[in-house]
Design a protein around this nucleic acid. Structure first.
Lengths: 222, 222
DNA sequence: TTAATAGTGTCTATTAGACAGTATGGC
DNA sequence: GCCATACTGTCTAATAGACACTATTAA
């Protein structure tokens, strides 16, 4: 019977998305072990059959252990595999992506934010994984409440429009956006709550919250 | 150092879609080895790092070896994993789906067709994989030329409409369908070619072919 | 009062669906 | 000629985008 090398190396990697100065950003971590020690890379690690109930479970465990992140929206993206993507040998990585609202970042550690459209050079095939995750979030943004999961519990309509614009990387029509969001019953008013005015906000706005906490898919584009 | 059991078992499985009597069907194969020997199941097998360049490459190899299928549209679906899905231990299967036009079936062997919405009981988590593949093809059908890949090289507009209806499991408006298909420039006429009349076809129709052989994504729904 | 952002109303262009109606070929 | 199916034209309803307009609040 042949040894371990008959089975691929199995890892998971997660693309972390967050907002930075109103722009979509990705969070990277400096690797402390070879291969590619010292490089900025996606947060990833080995799947441990003895503790993980699934690869998504493994991704969640690794996010908690290596970056202090928990409770995120986390979803499988795709699986990347081949003989050359990792110098340790034929490897397979189940890529995931996760959305990190500001509140989750407070407890996090060892992460650096970079604009999604101008990341540093990445080791392995992490550049391709990031590109695939970006394509997924942009497409899903048009069709679901996904971008709203980057916001805090309560938010204003201008906030919500801005995060859809940041995710999808295009300008939206204001009145059409309000019309669609309200018709879809995606959000509900927080009674008697208005946002404070800030440097960018000359005038308070009505606060809303998601009508459902989970990801909701729409039957038409936002 | 621990042995092989520290790495998951890595397999691929492919959901095969085809047309049967104008309805969307899936092709299953009787397993000749344990576990679940004798059961009808998806076509699948081990990834072989020494010969496969990727998991999709492994899926193509296994389709050729076990079913005589080659040259199909074959795409990764998602990865299914966990400790209990396979009695051999913690396992991971990269699920794919493929489209089998009638011509490819001619050379195929050891496959049985079943209606997609009424398959036999399936072993492992193959039922869940089939359901996920069906959801994917239905969704993608509305947004791309994917259903056309189930047809022969040339086909009529009524044929094309029927395959979209079979894939998406809904009736389409005839004139709207023709309008969209032609505006999208998905297809081109085959000059001076008309389909023969058949039992179901009282009147010959113009033959078309795909303007591009590959999968084309549209920016709006069919 | 002013400036800037929040929010509303309405017009128009686009497009999907319904469906009537014409064309064509086998019998 | 009859009938079924292929194909076309047109009306209408739904909806997205443009954009003018009003409302509100901090300074």
């Amino acid at each position: 019977m042949a040894g371990q090398e008959k089975r691929p190396i199995v890892t998971v990697d997660t693309v972390l998305f967050t907002l930075r100065d109103g722009r979509l950003a990705t969070l990277l971590q400096r690797r402390d072990k070879p291969p590619h020690a010292g490089s900025l890379a996606l947060v990833g690690g080995y799947v441990r059959p003895e503790e993980d109930a699934s690869t998504t479970d493994a991704a969640a465990r690794i996010l908690a252990q290596k970056a202090g992140l928990a409770g995120l929206f986390l979803e499988q993206l795709a699986t990347f595999s081949g003989p050359v993507r990792d110098p340790r040998g034929w490897s397979l990585s189940v890529a995931h992506y996760a959305l990190v609202p500001e509140a989750a970042l407070a407890a996090a550690h060892d992460l650096d934010a970079f604009p999604v459209d101008d990341p540093p050079p990445l080791p392995f095939d992490h550049g391709a994984i990031l590109a695939a995750a970006l394509a997924r979030i942009r497409n899903k943004g048009a069709w679901s409440s996904l971008p709203a999961l980057l916001l805090p519990e309560t938010f204003t309509l201008p906030d919500l429009k801005a995060v859809y614009e940041a995710v999808m990387d295009e300008r939206l029509n204001d009145s059409a956006f309000r019309r669609k969001i309200t018709e879809l019953r995606l959000i509900e008013e927080v009674p008697d709550a208005r946002s404070p005015a800030t440097a960018e906000r000359r005038r308070p706005a009505q606060l809303y919250r998601l009508a459902r906490r989970a990801l909701v898919a729409f039957d038409r584009v936002i």
